[in-house]
Each structure stands twice: as C-alpha cells, then as structure tokens.
Amino acid sequence: MLRDATLIFRSELLLARRSPARVGLEISQPLTWLLLFAPLMVGVMQESPDFRSGSAWMVMTPAITIYLVLMGSAFAGYKLLSDLGTGVLERMRVTPASRAALLLGNVMMRVVQTALQSMMVFLVAWILFDLPITVTGTLLTLAVGALLTLTLTSCSITVALLAKSEPIFTTMISTGLLPLTLLSGILMPITPGLAPEWLYILSRCNPLTWVADLARATFTGHYAFQPVVVGGAVLLVITVLSVWWGTRTFNREII
C-alpha cells in the first residue's frame, strides 16, 4: 500500500510541477495573512484579558499555519470531484493499486504543500518580527499541522466521494467549516476572560480547539499537560478515525 501511495504522490507532484505559478501562489498565501491580518489581531489581543503583551505574535504565528491547514485541506475534495468528472478514478480503480493508497497518495501531496506554507510563515515571522523560534518547536508544530492535514484532507475527500456533486460538497463543507473555525479559537483564542461562559464551554467541545492549543504549546515550548497530552490525544484520535472513515468509504464506493 505504501508503494502505491508513493507512486500516486509522485504523479500528483509531477502535475504540480507543470503549474509552477499555481504552486507559487498557494505557497505565498501565508504572507498575506502574516503581513495584513496578523498585525490587526495582535493589536486586539494585546488589549484582551489573559494575554501578555509580548506573547501575541507567538500565539498568532502558529494559529495562521493551523488556519491555512484548515482552509486548504477542507476543500481538497474538489480534486476528487474533478477526477470523478474526467474519469481518472474510473481508470485508477482497474489498476491493482489499493483503495487506501488512492486516498493516502492525494493526502501526502496536501501534507507537503501545507508544510511548505507553514515553514514560509515561520521563516518570515522570524526575520521580520524576531520571534524566538526553536528547531524543536518548529518541528513539533509542523508535525501537528501534518496530522491535522491528514485528518481534514481525508474527511474532505470522503465527503466529496459521498456527495459526488460540487454544489452538495460546497454546501456541506461550508456549513460545517464556519462554526468549527469560529469555535476553535484559531483566529482569536477563546478564553474565560474574553468569551461568555456558554461560548467558552462550547468551544471546548470542538476538537479543533484542542489542536490549536496544542500547536501554540509546541511552538512556544510550554509543554503543559492539558494542551500537550490532551490535545495530542484528541489529534491522534480524530486522525485515526478520519483515515479509517476515508479508507472504508473508498473501499465501498470505489469498487
């Protein structure tokens, strides 16, 4: 299966190399968030409860990478819908490649893309804002982003496979993505001193909240029990469930 997934990943990589302009635009998107959006939110966070004035950039930098993972991975299913429409999946399913490899090969490409975007964010933040970035913190945060990319891309591709229609897929993703994003505290951390109690409790029920806290903890090097152990456990659980769901759906639908 791993060999098949690698072959599919290489084919996706070759397709990307034929569109360098698109790849360049996708990788440069983090610069827009870092330079235009982050300064605004840093100013707001410095006046918010539960945040020290010097910690705002350290909070926002990993948050931007998680948001990019969320936005990029959630709509990865469009690629599968395109493959369905052009008959690519019809040709792929007659090959001996495992169905799980068809899923994982596409996911691997998305993981590489989001890793490049995240490294771009870290590099620019280090150069422009002189953040105390460490190698360990960077690698751990990239690992969190990779697992989240695996999770969300698997879910997106699976939803697209079930929807089989761009309008239905767009409606399903957009409907679920907005509350998950707002309640995750990615763009603006939801703290007891800032949010109403009911909103704070609701946010803690969102798995992405724990993942966002985990990314911030690994990036800043604050390895407390709740963000690291609990957040890591939540991330591993949703990753396993999403890959299982995606593989099971592929085996059932692509036969």
Score class of each variant (00 low, 15 high):
Ser73Gln: 03
Ser165Leu: 05
Ile66Trp: 03
Ala38Ser: 11
Asp4Gln: 06
Gly231Asp: 05
Thr6Gly: 02
Met109Leu: 12
Leu68Met: 14
Ser55Arg: 03
Pro192Asn: 09
Leu13Lys: 04
Leu102Gly: 10
Cys155Thr: 13
Val237Ile: 15
Thr6Asn: 04
Thr158Asn: 05
Gln117Glu: 10
Ile66Arg: 01
Glu166Gln: 09
Glu166Ser: 09
Ala143Gly: 15
Thr247Ala: 09
Leu123Ile: 12
Leu140Phe: 12
Trp57Gly: 06
Leu194Pro: 00
Thr65Leu: 02
Glu166Gly: 00
Leu80Pro: 00
Arg10Val: 08
Met109Trp: 13
Asp50Ala: 10
Thr175Glu: 00
Met172Asp: 00
Arg3Trp: 03
Pro49Lys: 10
Gly231Gln: 05
Leu116His: 03
Pro167Asp: 10
Pro227Gln: 07
Pro39Ile: 12
Ile66His: 05
Asp4Arg: 08
Asn206Tyr: 08
Ala215Asn: 10
Met45Asn: 04
Cys205Asp: 00
Gln29Tyr: 14
Lys79Pro: 00
Leu177Asn: 05
Thr6Pro: 00
Ser203Gln: 08
Arg99Thr: 04
Leu140Glu: 01
Gly185Glu: 01
Trp198Asp: 04
Val228Gln: 02
Leu2Pro: 01
Ala233Arg: 08
Leu187Asp: 00
Arg10Asn: 04
Leu131Phe: 08
Cys205Lys: 09
Ser184Arg: 06
Gly185Val: 08
Leu241Cys: 14
Leu70Val: 09
Gln29Ala: 14
Ile66Asp: 01
Ala195Ile: 03
Ile201Pro: 00
Ser154Asp: 04
Met108His: 02
Ala38Val: 15
Leu25Ser: 12
Leu36Ile: 11
His222Met: 05
Thr86Lys: 09
Val243Gln: 03
Val94Asp: 03
Met1Phe: 04
Ala100Cys: 01
Arg99His: 06
Glu47Gln: 13
Asn251Arg: 15
Thr134His: 12
Thr218Asp: 05
Gly54Val: 08
Thr151Ser: 13
Asn106Thr: 08
Glu253Lys: 11
Leu236Val: 15
Pro20Trp: 09
Trp126Tyr: 06
Asp4Ser: 12
Arg18Leu: 09
Ala56Arg: 02
Leu25Pro: 03
Gln113Leu: 15
Ala115Val: 14
Phe219Ala: 12
Phe37Asp: 01
Val159His: 02
Ser82Gly: 12
Thr220Lys: 01
Thr149Asn: 07
Gln46Met: 15
Asp83Thr: 00
Phe9Val: 03
Gln113Ala: 11
Ala195Val: 03
Glu12Phe: 11
Thr138His: 08
Thr141Asp: 07
Met60Arg: 08
Ile157Tyr: 02
Leu102Thr: 07
Met188Trp: 07
Leu35Phe: 13
Thr65Gln: 04
Ala16Arg: 14
Glu12Asn: 14
Ala146Gln: 10
Gly185Ser: 05
Leu123Ala: 15
Leu182Asp: 07
Leu128Thr: 13
Phe219Thr: 10
Leu102Tyr: 01
Thr181Tyr: 11
Thr218Pro: 04
Thr153Pro: 06
Met45Thr: 02
Met1Gln: 06
Ile201Leu: 13
Leu103Val: 13
Leu202Pro: 05
Gly176Phe: 04
